[in-house]
Structures are given as C-alpha cells and as structure tokens.
Amino acid sequence: MNFFEFLISRWPTILSLTLEHLFIVFIAMVISVTVGVAVGILITKNQMAARIVLNVTNILMTIPSLALFSLLIPVLGIGKIPAIVGLVAYTQLPIVRNVYTGIMTINPAILEAARGMGLTEKKIMRTIRIPLALPAMMSGIRTATVMGIGIGAIAGYIGAGGLGVYIFQGISRSSDQMVIVGAVLISVISILTDQFLGGVQRKLNR
C-alpha cells in the first residue's frame, strides 16, 4: 500500500484521532488557563507564596511526561481523565510565571499615577495591572498550549486517545506510515497553533 492509498483508506480514523487530540488539549487548556491565571494573580499578593508556587511548578515541569502519566495510572486509572490532569499540571509553569511577572513588572510610574488619582489597590489590579499584563499572559498561554499538544501525544500511551495512539501503535506494529502520519499531523497542529496564538499575541501588543 503506498502512502496515498493509506491516507485515503484510513482518513476517518485519522480525522477522529485528530479531533480527539484537539478535544483533550482544548479541555485541558481551558482548565489550565483558568487555574493558572487565578493562581498567578493570587500569588502577586504574597512574595513567599509566589516563591513556593513557582518552584513547585518548575519541578513539575522537569518530571518526564511519560513518568508523570504513568504515576497517575494507580491514582486515576487510564483514559482521558489522567491525561487531562497531567496536561493541566504540566502547562501550569508558563502560564503562572508569565501572569505573575506580567503583573509584577508594570511601570511603577503608571501605578504611582493611578494611586495619585485615588484608585484603590483592587481597582488598580482590575483596571491597570491585568489589562497591561495581557500580552505577557497570552505569551504564556501560547507556550503552554503548544507544549500541551506535544505532551497530549504522549498521553496516547495511557489510553487517552489522540494522535499519540497512531505513533505508539505504528511503532509496535512497525508501520512506518502510521508513525509518519501521526508525527506529521502533530507537528503541523503545533506549528499552526503557535502561529495563530502568536498572531493573537501581536494583536494584544498593539
């Protein structure tokens, strides 16, 4: 079977795996962004908490994804739930760090002016700090999402479905076509997502 025949005969499976992959990453990113932005904003109020949270997320990210997913199996079983939990844990660092630094590194002159105008700290956070930190937040979300797509492939190993399944099955059946289709699709999705979110980021920067 040549490559095009393979593509034509398997396209329903390929399409459903792609959609499954996008679905898992999307759900994980919605949770991850919500949690990450909330945590990132909360830790700006306490230096100590910020140090602890940033160190913990840093260590989380060095754990090999394959190992983290495997460790979640005894706790959460196999399937999409541990995959999403793992993805959320992994993608916290870029989001939390960028939200935190984005909010903390705002020009002091602007804050001074806001205080001089009589804004309360709460209002400054809502109307000045968060809007000005948006581009930094977006850049963290971009990094996290692209990472999530790649790690989502590894989640195929613990039965989460998605394009990783094609890669792992292809390797064990020594079917080069399956491996290449899986790998190329994941790469293309990562690159397109990165470009798209990069465009959003540039728009926010303006």
Binding site: G150, I151, V179, A183
Partner: peptide, 10 residues
C-alpha cells in the same frame, strides 16, 4: 514547536 515525540517518531 514540533513536539519531541513527533521528532523521535519521524
């Protein structure tokens, strides 16, 4: 931006 698993698989 290409994931490591994809590079290894390729």
């Amino acid at each position: 931006t290409v994931p490591s698993l994809a590079v290894v698989a390729l």
